[in-house]
Amino acid sequence: MDYPYVLHTKTMKAYLDQYIEELLSLGRYTFARSELDGRFGVGDAAIRQCLQRLMRVGSVRSIRSGFHVIIPPEYRSRGMLPPEMFIDDFMKHLGRSYYVGLLSAAALHGAAHQQPQSFSTIITKPSIRPVQSNGINLIFPVKSAMPLNGIDQKKSAAGFFRVSSPELTAIDLLSYLRLVGGVSSVVQVVEELIELMSEERLGRIAEGTAKTAPLQRLGYMLEEVFGEKELANVLLRELAKRDYFHIPLTPGGRLSKCPVNSKWKIKINENLEGEL
């Protein structure tokens, strides 16, 4: 579409509505404020006024200053698109590498009993402030480096986005225990992820995992709780290459008079079988 260089605010409203319809017809559900500045030759005040009108009627939401999500009629009652439909565009807008992880990834793999309260997107430093907008809560846990293996592409109605594989999801759940509610909160999730795991992928991902403790906890869980010896042995072979020490199954839990699993060097201070 070609637009005159100067538009009155009333005319601008019509052109902006038309522009948003054009984006939707192309399968796009997001736009940056900078796109409007370059597309329409009007002042900042006119664009701001038109965007505020669209936000009042619920057809556009602001995720962060300069980035907007289009809400088509079929999602209007929710007030927001599912995050997987705009997270890739948002992270590209910020110029950041990412993958959807933790309980959000588990849910996308069909391994969560209920929708997580937060949508977790794993990043590297610098950190990103959480985003709360119209019933969604986006959080951005930080990892020291992006994994070389274990990040899959998943398709939403708006295109592809990055998500941790079942194997990486399980390891991450045991790496961010405070965020996901502790070992007892993830044991059922890991049980469902097991059905999707492969030994080869688990080995490649474990080899690139910097932290040792989540491998110990996951290995113990796989072997002693679920009887998955083949998968557990993949982690044991990786641990054999490292120096690893005794750790509690549940960080911060009681340590006195706990039985110890010498194979995995785990102090068993919680009965996980009781959580199944």
Rank of each mutant, 00 (worst) to 15 (best):
117 Q>K: 07
117 Q>I: 05
118 S>V: 07
118 S>Y: 06
120 S>V: 07
121 T>V: 15
121 T>D: 00
121 T>S: 01
121 T>W: 00
122 I>P: 00
122 I>A: 03
122 I>Y: 04
123 I>C: 02
126 P>A: 14
126 P>R: 13
126 P>M: 14
127 S>Y: 14
128 I>M: 07
129 R>I: 13
129 R>P: 03
129 R>A: 08
130 P>E: 06
131 V>M: 03
131 V>Y: 04
133 S>E: 00
133 S>L: 01
134 N>Q: 10
135 G>C: 02
136 I>V: 08
137 N>G: 01
137 N>M: 09
137 N>P: 01
137 N>R: 09
138 L>Y: 04
138 L>W: 00
138 L>D: 00
138 L>V: 03
139 I>R: 02
139 I>A: 00
140 F>M: 12
140 F>D: 10
140 F>C: 15
140 F>N: 14
141 P>V: 05
141 P>D: 08
142 V>W: 07
143 K>W: 13
143 K>G: 05
144 S>D: 15
144 S>V: 15
147 P>C: 00
148 L>S: 04
148 L>C: 00
149 N>V: 02
150 G>Y: 05
150 G>C: 02
151 I>C: 02
151 I>P: 06
151 I>E: 06
152 D>C: 09
153 Q>Y: 13
154 K>C: 12
156 S>Q: 10
156 S>P: 14
157 A>H: 11
158 A>L: 07
161 F>M: 06
162 R>W: 08
162 R>V: 11
162 R>E: 12
162 R>D: 10
164 S>M: 04
165 S>V: 14
166 P>I: 04
166 P>T: 10
167 E>Q: 07
167 E>I: 06
167 E>F: 08
169 T>Q: 12
170 A>E: 05
171 I>G: 02
171 I>F: 06
172 D>C: 09
172 D>G: 08
173 L>S: 09
173 L>M: 13
174 L>C: 09
174 L>Y: 15
174 L>A: 14
174 L>E: 10
175 S>H: 06
175 S>V: 02
176 Y>R: 12
178 R>F: 08
178 R>H: 13
179 L>F: 09
179 L>Y: 11
179 L>W: 05
180 V>L: 14
180 V>T: 12
181 G>I: 11
181 G>S: 15
181 G>W: 13
184 S>G: 13
184 S>F: 02
184 S>R: 11
185 S>A: 15
185 S>K: 09
185 S>W: 04
185 S>G: 10
185 S>N: 11
186 V>F: 08
187 V>L: 12
187 V>P: 07
187 V>C: 13
188 Q>E: 12
189 V>K: 04
189 V>H: 01
190 V>P: 09
190 V>C: 04
193 L>E: 03
193 L>P: 07
193 L>Q: 03
193 L>V: 08
193 L>G: 07
194 I>V: 15
194 I>S: 11
194 I>L: 13
194 I>R: 11
195 E>F: 04
195 E>S: 13
195 E>Y: 06
195 E>C: 03
196 L>M: 05
196 L>Y: 00
198 S>D: 00
198 S>F: 01
199 E>A: 09
199 E>M: 02
200 E>L: 05
201 R>P: 03
201 R>T: 06
201 R>Y: 04
202 L>T: 01
203 G>L: 02
